Simulated scan of single mutants.
Amino acid sequence: MQEKIEMKVSLMVYPSQDWSEEDRKLVEMAKEIMFKAHAPYSDFLVGASLLLENGEKLMANNQENVSFPVGVCAERAVLSYAMANYPKSRPVKIVISAKKRFGERFATVTPCGLCRQTINEYEIKFQAPIQVMMLAPDGNLLVAEGIEQLLPFRFNDLNS
């Protein structure tokens, strides 16, 4: 007999008036670093800021390469830096902002599949969800309370 497996996923919408001071700082960091992205081929700028459990706030941006597959997303760049330099400090939340270089508005961007799986890796390592916050064109934050909300059937365990 066939069985259906369903998972419910959801994002919360946080208007700017509901942001904490910490969230405001992380959004500003993501926007600031976004404008320094190396994106000469797509002109699509992405910035990411990351809060670690130890209070450190880090940021990175996308880095394109003429050989497209070897570029690095902002999310993976900031997580890689964090884990290389603060390997024992759990990532608590990541904020993502994006826009076309000459565009007027921000773009709604969720992490790509590689970035989602990378976030999942650190949720596994630290046994805790990482809040994923994405800046929307209307100025709100779209918030996932863990990568399961963006990657419900993720690749989790090689031993199961």
Rank of each mutant, 00 (worst) to 15 (best):
A136V: 10
Q149D: 12
D23P: 03
V72F: 04
E53P: 04
S97Y: 02
E3Q: 14
E53K: 09
K100R: 13
L150A: 05
V92C: 07
W19Q: 05
I94Y: 01
N65I: 08
Q117F: 10
E145K: 15
C115H: 02
L11D: 03
A60V: 04
E123T: 03
N61T: 03
R116Y: 05
G103W: 04
K88I: 09
L79H: 10
L58G: 04
M12D: 13
L151K: 01
M133P: 02
E21P: 06
K125T: 09
K93L: 02
M1T: 12
A84K: 15
V95W: 02
V72L: 12
D23N: 05
V66H: 14
G47A: 00
L114Y: 13
M133W: 07
S67A: 14
A136W: 09
G146D: 03
M59K: 05
L11F: 10
V46L: 08
Q63G: 11
Y122T: 05
L150E: 05
I5K: 13
V72I: 10
A107T: 13
R101S: 14
I33T: 03
D18I: 08
F153G: 00
S160R: 15
E104V: 12
F44Y: 14
G71M: 01
I130G: 07
A48M: 08
I124Q: 12
A30P: 07
N85G: 09
K8N: 13
R90H: 03
L141C: 07
N140H: 09
N140T: 13
F68M: 11
D23K: 02
